[in-house]
Design a protein around this nucleic acid. Structure first.
Length: 410
DNA sequence: TCTGGGGTCCTAGGACCC
DNA sequence: TCTGGGGTCCTAGGACCC
């Protein structure tokens, strides 16, 4: 098969992304264990940690307190998502110079389909290696790159390449490559599925080949079908260049559980404000608004509403969020550790409704508020309700109570 | 150890319709 | 008067990923 007709997928992943950016911004962190996600006494988990921290057994998803216990000398930073966002944008801009067929798998992870660009690259492998070198030079961040005839093989190749390497699964080499991999490596196999598979004495992808398709289907549903195929390196999923996100959400876990309804509503308003800002920036309207509450016992409940007319404005979204939230909260006897709000079933433009006159005033107000905030920061303009949070926030900041988020003043 | 925030996708069950 | 079956929509929740 020549290079022109072969499918060639590249998967690329920035190593320890948030920690790497922090080290770039503050070179004194170089060579030190770095944990991004919060300060050790705060509620939360590590979102990223440097390879130096991993040597102590720290990993992402680990509670901060535990990370501190394992590695007290680590540097703990809260992190700054706006900075990561701008690095991510630069990352994807560079990738799109190589091909328009780029899928944003996350902030720091992408799939590229080079197949359509065969005429540009005499050797796909060389193009992939060149891309890796280019990213590292221009961004100053180490990346791992995997390549293969489809997404699953490219992704697994990247795992093999970590940290900082390049690995390619060549045609014919799939079986040998896959056989010995731990089932944990397969995306989609989380803790729950692992328990089930290990009980069946399935530990490596090769072991999975012994299970009939019907058994996997019975055990895992549609996910089982994927398991059957992906464990054999079969994957027809295309690289998708998505234009519209499926959902947008904002949520906060408080440093201390909250019981005060007024305070909770004020925070809900603040989240709706941030959410609608994101919707406006993306020119998105939501058919579904959902509110989430996590109680002091860690139980989580959500309530959603489907709307015929999609919404974007703060006034509409908050009114609905509040109507969903109050019965949820008042029905429980517990204080809350988390509130969240989510918009989904998103559309690009708002269809005109015959029965609801289009609120030009509301849209213009939203746009104006957005402009001021883009220029002077989110905290430059707050609703009266959000102002309620401010004294409380500054009052208790030193003691590290209530609000972890510094976004109010950002 | 005490459990983030932002996402995607799937499933089960009830309502409703024909 | 005690009753089917299939399809679709909607809600709630959960597994999983980075």
């Amino acid at each position: 098969m020549n290079a022109r007709s072969r499918r060639f997928i590249v998967h690329i992943d920035i190593d320890a992304f948030f920690a790497a950016v922090e080290t770039l911004l503050d070179p004194t962190l170089k060579g030190k264990p770095v944990v991004v996600g919060g300060l050790p006494h705060e509620r939360g988990v590590a979102s990223t940690c440097s390879y130096e921290a991993r040597r102590f057994g720290v990993h992402s998803g680990m509670p901060l307190a535990k990370a501190h216990e394992l590695c007290p000398q680590a540097v703990f930073v809260r992190g700054n998502h706006q900075v990561y966002q701008s690095f991510s944008e630069a990352f994807f801009r560079l990738l799109r110079e190589y091909t328009p067929d780029v899928e944003e798998a996350s902030l720091d992870e992408a799939y590229l389909d080079l197949s359509r660009c065969g005429h540009l690259y005499p050797s796909f492998s060389r193009a992939a290696r060149g891309l890796k070198a280019r990213i590292e030079r221009d961004l100053g961040l180490a990346v791992s790159v995997g390549a293969g005839p489809n997404k699953i093989l490219a992704k697994l190749a990247t795992k093999k390449a970590k940290p900082g390497g390049y690995f390619e699964v060549e045609p014919g080499g799939e079986e040998e490559f896959l056989r010995g991999l731990d089932i944990e490596a397969l995306p989609g196999i989380g803790p729950k599925s692992q328990v089930i598979l290990r009980l069946l004495n399935v530990h490596r992808l090769g072991d999975l080949w012994g299970l009939p398709r019907a058994s996997l289907r019975a055990l895992f549903g549609l996910e089982g079908e994927d398991l059957y195929l992906q464990s054999r390196g079969i994957d027809a999923r295309p690289v998708v260049t998505r234009v519209t996100p499926k959902s947008v959400s904002r949520e906060t876990t408080f440093l201390r559980d909250i019981w005060d309804t007024r305070l909770l509503l004020a925070h809900l308003a603040y989240l709706c404000d941030r959410l609608t800002l994101a919707l406006r920036q993306g020119c998105l309207y939501a058919h579904i608004i959902e509110v989430k509450a996590r109680y002091s016992d860690f139980r989580t409940e959500a309530r959603r509403r489907l709307m015929i007319t999609p919404r974007q404005e703060m006034g509409d979204v908050f009114r609905i969020a509040r109507e969903l939230f109050l019965p949820l909260f008042e029905g429980s006897r517990l204080s809350l550790r988390l509130v969240g709000v989510k918009a989904s079933d998103l559309v690009r433009s708002r269809p005109r409704s015959l029965f609801e006159p289009y609120s030009e005033r509301g849209e213009r107000l939203g746009a104006a508020v957005g402009e001021v905030r883009d220029k002077y920061g989110f905290g430059s303009l707050l609703t009266a309700r959000e102002r309620m949070l401010e004294p409380l926030y500054s009052l208790e900041k030193e003691r590290g109570f209530v609000l972890k988020t510094a976004s109010l003043t950002r």
